Lab assay of single mutants.
Amino acid sequence: MDSLVVLVLCLSCLLLLSLWRQSSGRGKLPPGPTPLPVIGNILQIGIKDISKSLTNLSKVYGPVFTLYFGLKPIVVLHGYEAVKEALIDLGEEFSGRGIFPLAERANRGFGIVFSNGKKWKEIRRFSLMTLRNFGMGKRSIEDRVQEEARCLVEELRKTKASPCDPTFILGCAPCNVICSIIFHKRFDYKDQQFLNLMEKLNENIKILSSPWIQICNNFSPIIDYFPGTHNKLLKNVAFMKSYILEKVKEHQESMDMNNPQDFIDCFLMKMEKEKHNQPSEFTIESLENTAVDLFGAGTETTSTTLRYALLLLLKHPEVTAKVQEEIERVIGRNRSPCMQDRSHMPYTDAVVHEVQRYIDLLPTSLPHAVTCDIKFRNYLIPKGTTILISLTSVLHDNKEFPNPEMFDPHHFLDEGGNFKKSKYFMPFSAGKRICVGEALAGMELFLFLTSILQNFNLKSLVDPKNLDTTPVVNGFASVPPFYQLCFIPV
């Protein structure tokens, strides 16, 4: 009986604490739906499609509103004006990374994606500088992407125009580009180590996009005490870190300090320079996690976009025909596509942009946080508050993009057929937390897609009208449904 009384008292205290925290903070924060004790607004949000729920709530509470995930307040920004004001106009104040408990377990605050403060700034600055020195957006990395595009075309030829699921092959190409940047090595598509790495990356994007992960991140005790797919994700990350550590040891034994070959060499050189400046942010643990982040951000996002792009091109054969006509006119058949071609191919450029806009790969991006107490639109948001960005509300804005739910390359073309930029184009987020590999991803999408369409016609196994382009999961990332196609050599 005594234990029951204690339990009831504990629960009562928890409920009172929950109510007090919510009521004391709500006077400062933007308005929002009334949260339930302990669980907050979790029942009012469709976990399978958070973005749709945010759109519905914005119609009631406006472009800036507050939700509670458990006891934790989260300020939501919906629509271009609110997102721009926060991420661009007040970029420094909104540059923090929001709480992501599962990532905390995986990387302990290291790396480039989930770190904060001085650690994040130094690692991000170093990573950007190193990638630029190796030619991100310049010639040397373009050579690597072109080489991988040629290998991709050869792998597709091996399908002999038979029906195939493109998931694996389209994942190999961007993964190999990242391998060449980090390890100075590309792998054969049949290499077992490479296959294991690909498998872990593919599993992780599916797990991260599941409703279960949303629950884990908002009720963090689940991570330590409950079984579930989150444990598989943590094991996959541990596998990748151990693999990278092996490569780091190989580099330490063979590195030429006067001739760095890749990202690992550059990081080890930085560690050597910083060894007298303790404590340094440049450690082996930081290198492991930064490399894992580059793999995660640079492989599955690009391969998922490529997979979605081919599905949309199957669905819209008239678009595919126009792209192939432009390829034939500008590039021809006797040389590989290059980035200089893009400025002469406005329709193809528009298609690449429209694919990214339409699929809305990361509907709410990753959570941000404010780095200080900030007054925002007459609300006071306390330091450390998590900020949720609705990228969907920007990419699918119906004023900027008429009929935003329709796939239409003319969203990025003017009346004369010239490519038209849009400030609403934010597939990689915006501001200080914009994806480090934005330029690389854009290069890969253009070169891989043009190389495929230069060499193959795409054949659907069903009537294009019957192809479903609805994402199968739409949590962290929008993942396309399973499909097969035939690559018919031109």
Rank of each mutant, 00 (worst) to 15 (best):
Q261G: 10
K270A: 05
F446Q: 00
L380I: 15
F69N: 04
E300V: 12
E93A: 12
K249P: 02
G117D: 11
V60Y: 09
E92G: 07
G70I: 02
I112R: 10
P363M: 04
N258M: 10
Y483P: 03
F263V: 06
V351L: 06
D262K: 02
E415I: 13
K275C: 07
K138G: 10
E272D: 12
P211G: 10
L208Q: 11
P35T: 07
G46A: 09
T320N: 07
P279G: 15
V153L: 05
G117W: 05
A149N: 01
L29G: 03
R333M: 09
P260G: 10
T34N: 15
E444M: 05
E281G: 12
D341V: 03
I434H: 09
N474E: 13
L54M: 06
G442R: 09
D397M: 05
Q44G: 09
L311Q: 01
S23R: 09
L362G: 04
T159K: 07
N398C: 15
H276S: 09
N277V: 12
N289M: 12
N277E: 13
I169E: 03
P346A: 07
L391D: 05
V76E: 00
H78L: 08
S95T: 06
G62L: 00
L467H: 04
A106G: 11
T348E: 01
R97G: 08
T386R: 08
K232T: 13
H251W: 02
K200A: 14
E122Q: 15
E154D: 13
D468S: 10
S127F: 13
I213L: 13
S23I: 08
F401L: 05
F263M: 10
P73N: 02
S3F: 12
S23N: 14
V145I: 10
W212C: 03
Y243S: 04
G137P: 08
S254Y: 09
E81I: 02
M426V: 07
N466S: 12
V473W: 14
F239R: 08
K247T: 10
Q484R: 13
C266G: 08
I223A: 13
E274Y: 07
V113Q: 15
V76W: 00
K383N: 07
V76P: 00
V292E: 04
A103V: 14
N258G: 14
V394R: 11
K121E: 15
R377S: 04
A149R: 01
Q454R: 03
P363V: 06
F482E: 15
L458V: 06
I182R: 01
G111S: 08
F100C: 11
F401K: 03
R26Y: 12
A350C: 03
N258L: 12
V60F: 05
Q261A: 13
T450F: 00
S286H: 14
I99W: 14
V5M: 13
N218M: 13
E272V: 13
L361T: 11
D49V: 04
C179R: 00
V145T: 02
I50F: 13
P427S: 10
K399G: 15
R21E: 03
V5I: 06
P363C: 10
P227F: 10
V153G: 01
K232G: 04
F428P: 06
Y379P: 00
V394A: 08
R433P: 06
T302E: 03
T229S: 15
I181R: 00
G109V: 05
Q324T: 08
I182Q: 01
E326L: 00
F425L: 03
K185D: 08
F126M: 08
M129D: 15
E328M: 15
Q193Y: 07
I359G: 07
I88L: 08
L156A: 02
N204C: 05
R342D: 00
N133Q: 15
V472K: 10
A441E: 04
T130Q: 13
S24R: 14
I387S: 01
P211D: 07
K235F: 06
S286R: 07
L268E: 05
G384D: 11
L4P: 02
S115F: 07
S303N: 05
P471L: 04
F65P: 00
K28R: 12
F446C: 02
I74M: 10
M426K: 05
V145E: 00
N398W: 09
L9H: 00
V292S: 08
I327M: 05
P471R: 09
F401D: 08
Q324R: 11
F110N: 14
L71N: 14
T305V: 09
L131C: 06
D414K: 06
V292N: 05
G384A: 04
H344T: 09
N218A: 15
M339G: 06
L16F: 12
L268V: 07
I47P: 11
T305H: 05
Y243V: 14
A369G: 05
T450G: 03
Q214G: 10
Q252T: 11
I327Y: 00
N231F: 05
H396E: 08
G228Q: 06
S242R: 14
E81V: 08
K375C: 03
W20G: 03
D165Y: 01
L361D: 08
P464I: 04
C172M: 13
M136V: 13
F267L: 03
K72S: 07
Q278G: 10
S23T: 13
E285R: 10
P221G: 08
D49E: 08
L29A: 04
R97L: 05
R342H: 05
D468R: 12
C435D: 07
L201A: 06
Q278K: 15
P402H: 14
R377V: 01
M345Q: 02
H344N: 13
C175M: 13
A350D: 00
E142R: 02
L306S: 01
N474Q: 12
F295D: 00
F425A: 06
Q454T: 02
I205C: 15
E85V: 05
S58M: 04
P63M: 04
L453G: 01
Y483G: 01
T299A: 15
V490H: 12
C10P: 02
Y61H: 12
K249W: 10
K118A: 14
M255G: 13
T371A: 07
E154P: 00
D262V: 02
L195D: 04
I47V: 09
T304P: 02
P346T: 04
